[in-house]
Design a protein around this nucleic acid. Structure first.
Lengths: 239, 239
DNA sequence: GGCAACCAGATTGTTAACGATTTGCGCGCC
DNA sequence: GGCGCGCAAATCGTTAACAATCTGGTTGCC
């Protein structure tokens, strides 16, 4: 076993830059939570990597109590795993879990799409059309990173248009847990083309004010992501 | 304003008995969380009531740190609201929020029902049939409290049969937030009869192994609960 | 009599030190 | 040489005291 005890973290992405986080007075725990979560999402902290309290204290300059509260919250959010007297580790989400998460997302985002279709105003439609065009150019230019980013923006836009705070909370939580798979799926050959077609259908249904069609297309889209995850599994792809 | 500062708690249910919670070694925070959550669900702590740390310390015999962690977790679960330097209060969920929560439940429980229909074995079907019969006798006997209890057991059984841990987590969280409305809906005139019919349809669909029918009936059932909530609103019913 | 500043009590936030548990390593025994 | 035991370092959990903040009532002034 290696010195740090856990799964060997692979080299961090070149796109990290640490973000020292100015501990604004009275928001320490929130800052630490955001910083650690961001580190997990961005790949600075690898799945299975240990997160000793002392290390986070020196990293973020926060007190141990703050770090402790932050870890408790992150555990509650499902991105960190803690064992008594054994410390905290970045939780490893299996492919099976990612499938479950995406299935759950499919129904909740379906609800959001339906609500968005019912509530979308002219400005909302304009916003979605902009995103649709941006997605189109990204796919045309084979810009996978841009595709992935705008992809997420589409989902977030529909979520915001739906104005359903409960669904929004649930979705934020679910997305954080499976974020690391999003890029992977986007990298599958042909995925951007399929995704573009599906997103276009969703946007059209929402803008047409058809809740049923919006829900169905959104669900179909995320179930196709589930299919892609299974394909990943078939390829023995592992983190 | 009264001495305790918050909304006046109505007299607690006769069914509380405090549950002093034997602080088993190494599970203090979990115990406090469970105790406070239970107190909120059972009505010992009313919505809006203040929850001073010192009071919880004396109530449960836990250290202040444990109480503090527990409150943080309860805040994260959405049943407690905390303001900086102003302490914690039991969160008041509005009827609009209860509607949102039930809408979210409808789609996620729909997913569970579909999965349950696909995965139910003979023992699962037997379990559901027992619950169906118990629900029937409860409604025949006009036993509203039994109806409400078995009602929840049906939902929980389907959730367990679905074996979808992500959906289960989401649902546990959502149910806790809106628990106090469950009894109220069950008390609406004619509600047990309607609920019985709907639950029977759900159980039949799950036992028939028809995922689509199971999902549709479950969604229809919870949307009918949403309708009941709106009727509550029309009656100017307030907590 | 009304209003504003102020002071005391209560409550929460923070920090530091102490105690308990686990883990890795070295030593001795078989 | 392999295996089990025990010690020491590291890490987490808990407690207690201190500091900062808010609330409510009181007092003095206009």
């Amino acid at each position: 076993m290696t010195a740090d005890g856990g799964t060997m973290p692979r080299p961090a992405d070149p796109t990290d830059a640490v973000a020292p986080v100015e501990s604004a007075a009275g928001e320490k725990v929130g800052d630490v939570v955001a910083a650690v979560r961001d580190g997990i999402v961005k790949g600075r902290f690898a799945p299975g990597q240990r997160l000793p309290e002392a290390e986070l204290v020196t990293l973020f300059g926060a007190s141990r109590g703050a770090v402790r509260s932050a870890l408790a919250q992150l555990e509650n959010e499902g991105v960190v795993l803690r064992e008594r007297n054994r410390g905290a580790r970045v939780r490893e989400v299996s492919l099976a879990e990612a499938v479950e998460i995406t299935e759950a997302r499919s129904v909740v985002e379906g609800l959001c799409a339906a609500k968005a279709a019912a509530r979308a105003g002219a400005d909302d439609r304009a916003r979605l059309h902009v995103l649709r065009d941006e997605l189109h150019t990204a796919v045309d230019g084979a810009d996978v990173v841009a595709y992935s980013r705008i992809n997420q923006q589409v989902h977030r836009a529909i979520q915001e248009i739906a104005r359903h705070s409960t669904a929004a909370q649930v979705l934020d939580r679910l997305r954080i847990q499976s974020v690391r798979y999003h890029y992977t799926v986007a990298l599958l050959p042909g995925r951007p083309t399929v995704g573009l077609r599906e997103h276009t259908a969703i946007i059209d249904a929402v803008c047409a004010g058809d809740p049923d069609a919006a829900e169905q297309t959104m669900r179909a889209h995320l179930l196709s992501v589930v299919e892609s995850l299974h394909r990943l599994d078939a390829q023995q792809y592992r983190w």
